[in-house]
Design a protein around this nucleic acid. Structure first.
Lengths: 256, 256
DNA sequence: TTCCTTGTCGTACACTGTACGACTAGCCCT
DNA sequence: AGGGCTAGTCGTACAGTGTACGACAAGGAA
């Protein structure tokens, strides 16, 4: 279930992201000590613990000890809440990234691994469709800043710097999604990846025609055996990262 | 809204995917001429035209002129229906791919572009989470076969062949998702990407601190201007594809 | 003709986001 | 001190979701 963000007008979203206006509670809200931050933090905790599927407005309100509609005092709609959650979670990036390395390749690899662990900590990040119009709050910009710094000083122009960071970031998100989907599938079905593959492989063997799929017949079992599944996202991450950095090296240095 | 697939047991799913058992209708179903294929084809047509969000069991049944629960005669649940849709849509791959090229790099690029146009034709493919446990039907295997053939004869071993195809495929899916999300955002908000960027950029200028984000301050506006948006997935595709193929070339030939 | 199998489908349940409007607690002004 | 207004709270309602259950009916077999 991917959720869409940023419904309302950009100005409203931005002023929320940067906390330009805070609805200072005067009424009974003061009792509960509610605030945008508390709503967002609780929502993140809920999504971390039980997934984005468990994050309904009613449930979040119950966790906060208020009525469902009270949330709409602090947040215009669920879409904006998700924006705020994304920005807040991505803001943790600096604590996961140590930019000690002095070579761009080491820096970029560190960025990729820090990003990877962000998605491990907050898997629901991959289920909010922030692609086209990211919530341009402090958290997102901080991550973007550090990502760009990693490719700074390589001689690449500004457009290429942006493109390289975007490429790495998209790759990490894609492979991380693999992990998340596998975990979700395990929880939904109660069957582990290995069990599923062991149940599927023999049936598949009988059903499909080696003459129609000669290359799959040769490659599939070997690959499947190597990763004990149809797909191992962690291995895909390690493999792909090297290819990607090699490709960027060609652009930067003219050779890997 | 990403939907999960493959709830039931693998054996049941596989026999459906390969059409091992067809519920030959004897009762009133014969009047409507219903079949698994007709259900799947109609579901694909609906998802193509109005998106995965419009694909509810009630709506699909209405399009077929039957009651909602009738669908469950042909398909165990919505998850399995999605599996069947994915496999059927991916089966169109050969008609989009001409493997004339005799160099692996040209073949792999053709695979990437064919895959890209699949996601253009069926954007909803990107919203079903098939990652970990793909529906291993004839359509998926056909695409996998042709993808593997593209990297065959390069001297790579079986595990690496699988890894390269997976890497390319993941990259295409990731960037294609960018397009889909942008279109979805435009339809949901009524604001085009360019309009959104033009509304956001000036506000953002005032709100954020150049000293805190020096590299973003330098790179962001140049990149934003170059693509008239925060992100241009088509340019990201062209840029990333070259990097990726360069990286694979290093693996295959030892140099780009 | 009677029975049984098998496809059809109306109803019901628990759930979603949020529009609307009623309620009330606290602040300001007189 | 008292009245009025502002602004946060939240109960109810609506249109939708996937699908379990069980009633129904039509065709083939005896």
């Amino acid at each position: 279930m991917t959720e869409i963000t940023g419904t309302g007008d950009p100005a409203r979203s931005l002023s929320l992201l940067w906390r330009l206006v805070e609805p200072s509670p005067r009424g009974r809200g003061a009792e509960a000590g509610l605030s945008v931050d508390r709503v967002v933090d609780t929502a993140i905790a809920l999504a971390d613990a039980e997934g984005l599927g468990a994050l309904s407005m009613r449930r979040l309100a119950a966790d906060l000890g208020v009525g469902a509609m009270t949330l709409y005092t602090y947040v215009p709609a669920k879409a904006e809440l998700l924006d705020l959650m994304v920005d807040s979670a991505l803001g943790e990036f600096p604590s996961l990234y140590s930019p000690v390395a002095d070579h761009w390749r080491a820096r970029l690899e560190a960025v990729a691994r820090a990003s990877w662990s962000q998605y491990e900590r907050h898997p629901w990040l991959l289920h909010v469709a922030a692609s086209g119009r990211p919530p341009l709050g402090p958290g997102v910009l901080t991550k973007y800043e550090l990502g760009l710094q990693a490719v700074d000083g390589t001689g690449l122009d500004e457009v290429a710097m942006d493109a390289v960071f975007t490429l790495i970031e998209g790759f990490v998100a894609g492979t991380a999604r693999g992990v998340v989907d596998q975990v979700a599938a395990e929880e939904a079905t109660g069957i582990t990846e290995t069990e599923w593959w062991e149940a599927t492989a023999p049936i598949l063997d009988r059903v499909f025609d080696p003459e129609r799929f000669p290359t799959v017949t040769r490659v599939g079992p070997v690959a499947g055996e190597a990763q004990q599944a149809a797909y191992d996202p962690r291995k895909a991450f390690e493999f792909g990262l090297v290819r990607l950095l090699d490709g960027v090296a060609v652009l930067v240095d003219g050779s890997p």
